[in-house]
């Protein structure tokens, strides 16, 4: 009699197994937990005091209190979302466990779904204290209301797409490509117009900026805080670009996985 239950398609038990694996890892290491909270908290304190200072000395920011802190929090959702996915993936490379997983019945899509769930869990651990701290600087993220859901969904989809893409790069090129995990999002920062409007950019660069879904979110946030209007058109456009981005990054991941199989690097990993 077989000990094993057969299943086809996407199997929840395999996704649960992977989430459980990352959860065990997270709770076994207090430095990992501290790291999740430390940087977001430090950021909000620094930017919170800066915002206080500016709002006391500049009428523009006094009119739209919280713009900086709002941008910091939304940026962190984007950045931490990608890191949360990619670091869980890197854990497999560091642990030399990828061969065990790829040889198991786990499918790439199930692996990626588990990484996305972990991204949400890690994000919650880091961002919830950040949101609470922001209240001490008189910024209540939840006061953004329902638009916050649209902002969050668009940012998290972008972060997952980029996380999947860089995980594919590491899968194919080994840990030598690890630095891309940490730096990719910062390359996006000036173009996504996190702290300033798109109109600040030279005209030709604005076209590049509008190709990135986070740009729509940060413009939408400023519209909400300055003009008190929710720009649904911006959110829908961002969502459409995100759908394309997600499909492309998933296809690239599968292509890089196949390339790693051809190169024989799945069993050895390495640099």
């Amino acid at each position: 009699m077989s000990l094993v239950e057969r299943s086809h398609g996407i199997a929840m038990h395999r996704i649960n197994a992977m989430v459980l694996r990352y959860w065990y890892l997270l709770v076994s290491s207090w430095p990992r937990m501290l790291e999740l909270v430390y940087w977001p908290a430090l950021q909000i304190i620094t930017w919170g005091f800066l915002q206080n200072y500016i709002s006391q000395n500049a009428g523009f920011f006094a009119q739209a209190g919280g713009t900086l802190i709002g941008a910091v929090i939304l940026w962190d959702i984007l950045f931490r979302g990608q890191l949360g996915l990619s670091i869980s993936f890197l854990e497999e490379m560091w642990a030399r466990n990828l061969g065990n997983l790829m040889m198991s019945p786990l499918k790439p899509i199930e692996f990626l779904i588990s990484l996305m769930i972990m991204s949400l869990i890690r994000l919650a651990i880091g961002v919830i204290p950040m949101v609470i701290l922001a209240m001490f600087f008189k910024f209540n993220l939840f006061a953004l209301g329902l638009p916050l859901i649209a902002f969050f969904c668009n940012l998290i989809f972008t972060s997952w797409s980029l996380g999947i893409f860089v995980s594919g790069l590491v899968l194919r090129n080994g840990l030598g490509a690890e630095s891309i995990v940490w730096t990719l999002m910062f390359g996006l920062m000036p173009l996504a117009c996190v702290y300033y409007p798109v109109s600040v950019l030279p005209t030709w660069l604005q076209y590049v900026a509008w190709a990135l879904p986070p740009t729509y979110v940060f413009e939408g946030m400023r519209a909400l805080l300055f003009d008190h209007t929710f720009r649904a058109d911006l959110m829908l456009t961002a969502l459409a670009i995100n759908v394309v981005l997600f499909i492309v990054s998933f296809a690239i991941f599968l292509g890089l996985l196949n390339s790693a199989r051809r190169a024989g690097t799945l069993i050895s990993g390495g640099e």
């Binding site: 094993v4 239950e5 057969r6 299943s7 199997a11 038990h13 395999r14 649960n16 197994a17 992977m18 459980l20 694996r21 065990y24 890892l25 076994s28 290491s29 854990e91 642990a95 030399r96 466990n97 990828l98 061969g99 065990n100 997983l101 198991s104 019945p105 786990l106 069993i267």
Partner: peptide, 21 residues
């Protein structure tokens, strides 16, 4: 390949057992 080092033996076997249903 290695078993994840920070996980206990029981945790590792639980994860792989669940992967294999």
């Amino acid at each position: 390949v290695d078993m994840p080092m920070r996980l206990t033996v029981r945790q590792n076997l639980t994860v792989f057992g669940k992967l294999y249903a």
